Simulated assay, not measured.
Amino acid sequence: MATVTLKGNEIHTKGSLPSNGSQAPAFTLIKSDLSSASLSDYSGKKVVLNIFPSVDTGTCAQSVRQFNEEAAELDDTIVLCISKDLPFAQARFCGAEGIDNVEMLSDFRDGSFGDAYQLTFTDGPLQSLLSRSVVVIDENGKVIYSEQVSETVDEPNYKAALEALADA
């Protein structure tokens, strides 16, 4: 179990993120057209997982905007923005914001992504949502960077995640 905070109050997740050097856990998530996307679909590319509780909060929305801006300049890299928001809400947000350099994916159907990455909140007001985190995976499926944001209302360390990509 990992402990983070929400506005200073402790909340917990199922466990810890995959460690650097480990094989990224497989997953299947739902796209905006309700089709499935799996980690294997991105084989041969570097993958940034931008994970957050809900795109309908300011910090989560900002992380999508920031990674959308950064992703435009990345070669052979895909940024996947993952939450339990319904795909319709994710698509609405991207349409309204002009977001087109990232792919939105939802774990709403069965929560298996949150289980595989140990990011599902187990208590507190965000129980069953995903903890704000970033995981960077190289083209061979190995984790090269991970961050679980210790204070949920804070943004992730974009610079460190992008530097991990540059070093890969």
Rank of each mutant, 00 (worst) to 15 (best):
G111W: 01
E147D: 04
I51S: 07
F67E: 04
G98K: 14
F93G: 11
A96P: 02
F67K: 10
S146T: 14
S22H: 03
L126W: 08
S40I: 09
E147P: 02
E103N: 08
A26I: 04
I30L: 08
V134E: 00
Y117R: 05
C60T: 01
D107N: 04
S83Q: 03
E73I: 00
D138C: 05
V79F: 09
L39V: 10
T120K: 14
V55E: 02
G114R: 05
D107A: 02
R132F: 04
A72P: 06
A71Y: 11
G124L: 05
D76F: 03
F52N: 05
D76V: 06
F108N: 10
S35H: 09
G44A: 08
A61I: 06
V48R: 03
T57H: 10
G124A: 08
E139S: 15
V135S: 04
K45H: 13
D56C: 01
A24F: 06
L74I: 06
K31E: 07
M104N: 10
N101C: 12
D41Q: 00
G58R: 05
S22C: 03
G141F: 00
S22N: 14
G141T: 09
V143Q: 04
R92Y: 02
I144C: 05
Q118G: 03
S40R: 13
V79G: 12
S54N: 00
Q127N: 11
S131E: 13
V134T: 14
A116R: 07
Q127R: 14
F52V: 09
V64A: 14
A24G: 12
L126S: 01
A72H: 10
Y42C: 03
Q66F: 10
V136A: 11
A116L: 08
V79W: 11
S43Y: 04
S106G: 10
A72L: 09
C81K: 03
S133K: 07
S54V: 05
L39T: 09
N101L: 11
